[in-house]
Nucleic acid binder design. Structure first.
Lengths: 195, 195
DNA sequence: GTTAACTCTTACAGCACTGTAAGATATAGC
DNA sequence: GCTATATCTTACAGTGCTGTAAGAGTTAAC
C-alpha cells in the first residue's frame, strides 16, 4: 500500500481556484441554500466549468464546504480545551470559538437544509458539547434536572438564534455573545426557583 | 362597494379537495421544504391538475398553507388570554397552545425556508409574544437585563428546538413541554447568579 | 334526471438546472 | 521558451419541474 503518486503537478492557481470556490460556496449557500453551481462559480470569479473541473458533482462541492467548515470548527473547539477548568468557563470559551467559526462559515447557520448533509459532520460537534455538559453536571456545576441531550440542543438552538437575530438586525453584533452567555448559563446552571 | 356575488355554487367535494390539499401540503412540506406540487397532490389523493384548479400557482398554495396555519395559531394564542394573570402562567398557556398548533401544522417548524414567506404572517405571532414578555418585565416577573426582543427570539428558538429533538427521537414527546417550560422560565425570570 | 361543477387523463411548451464535451486561450513551472 | 496544466467559451443532452390546455368521465346540487 505504498503511495504511488504519479508525477502530478498541482498548480498554484488551481489551488487558489479551489479555495475561492469553497469560500464563495460557503458565503452564497448561507443566504440561499439552493444556490446553483452557476451562482457559486460567479461569486468565486470563475466559470461553472471550472467548478466541475475540481468537483465532479454539486454534491461533492457541498461535502467539501461542510467538511472544511466542520474541520475548522472542531479544531477551534479542541483549542478551547473544553476538558480543562470549570465547565462554565469552558462553555464560555466554546461559545467564543463557535462564534468566530460561524462568522467565517455562515453556511453552518443553515446546516439543516436539503443537500447540506451535516448529519455525519455534526456528530463530532455534538459529541464534544455533550461531553462538556455531562462533565458540568457530574461536577455539580450544571443542573441535573434536565437531560444532557436537551441542554446540548438548547445550547445549539440559542447560539443559532443569536446569529439569526444579528442577521435580522434586531441584535447588535457586539451584544450577541453576551446575551447568549447569560441566557445559556441560566438554563445550564438552573436557579432552583423553578420546580 | 356592494358584494356582487355571481351565482357561484361551491360544491362540497371541491371544498374537501381544497382542505385535503392544504392538509397534505402542510404535512409534506414539513419534511421536504422543496416538495413538488406533484408530491403534494399525490399525498392529498388528487392529481396535480386538480391542485392547479384551486391554486393558480405553487406560491399561492404555499401562501394558503402558511396563512391558514398562522390564522389558527393566532386564534389559539388569543384563546390563551395572554393579557390575563401572572405572565409566567400566561407563558405556560402560550407554550401549550403553540405545541398543539405545531402538532397540527408541523410545517411551521420549517417556517424559515425558501418559498415559505412567513415574514408577513410571523409578525403578529412575534407581536403577541413580545407584548407578553414586556408585560412580564414591567411587572417585575421577568428579568430586565436581557432585551425583550432577545427573550422573544430565545422563546421561539427553544420551542423549535424541542420540536426538532422530538422529531430526532432524542426527546420523548411527553417530556417536551416540561423541559421547554423549565428552560424558558429560567431564562425569562433570571436567577441573579449570573452577572 | 338534468345540469353545471369538478376531477382525471393525456399532452405540450418553457424553463432552470446538472453534467458532459471539445477546441481555443492563457498561465504557472521547469 | 517550452510544456503540461488550468481556464474560458460555446455547445449539447438529459432531467424534473411549473404552468397551460383540451376532452372525457364523474359527481354533487337542484
Amino acid at each position: 500500500m505504498s503511495e504511488l503518486v504519479p508525477p502530478r503537478r498541482r498548480r498554484a492557481d488551481a489551488e487558489r481556484s479551489v479555495a475561492a470556490i469553497v469560500d464563495a460556496a460557503s458565503r452564497v449557500l448561507a443566504e440561499q441554500a439552493e444556490a446553483s453551481v452557476e451562482a457559486i462559480a460567479a461569486a468565486a470569479g470563475v466559470t461553472r466549468q471550472t467548478v466541475y473541473a475540481h468537483f465532479r458533482t454539486r454534491e461533492e462541492l457541498l461535502a467539501a464546504v461542510v467538511g472544511r467548515a466542520t474541520a475548522e470548527a472542531l479544531a477551534a473547539m479542541d483549542a478551547a480545551e473544553l476538558d480543562t477548568g470549570p465547565a462554565a468557563d469552558a462553555l464560555v470559551r466554546l461559545l467564543e470559538a463557535s462564534w468566530r467559526t460561524f462568522e467565517r462559515y455562515p453556511v453552518l447557520l443553515r446546516a439543516d437544509q436539503p443537500g447540506l448533509s451535516t448529519e455525519d459532520d455534526h456528530g463530532p460537534v455534538r459529541a464534544r458539547l455533550l461531553r462538556l455538559v455531562r462533565r458540568g453536571q457530574e461536577a455539580g456545576e450544571f443542573d441535573r434536572a434536565l437531560p444532557a441531550d436537551w441542554l446540548v440542543a438548547t445550547t445549539i438552538a440559542v447560539g443559532h438564534a443569536a446569529g439569526a437575530e444579528v442577521a435580522a438586525g434586531r441584535l447588535p453584533v457586539g451584544e450577541a455573545l453576551g446575551v447568549v452567555r447569560v441566557s445559556l448559563l441560566r438554563v445550564l446552571t438552573g436557579d432552583g426557583r423553578v420546580q
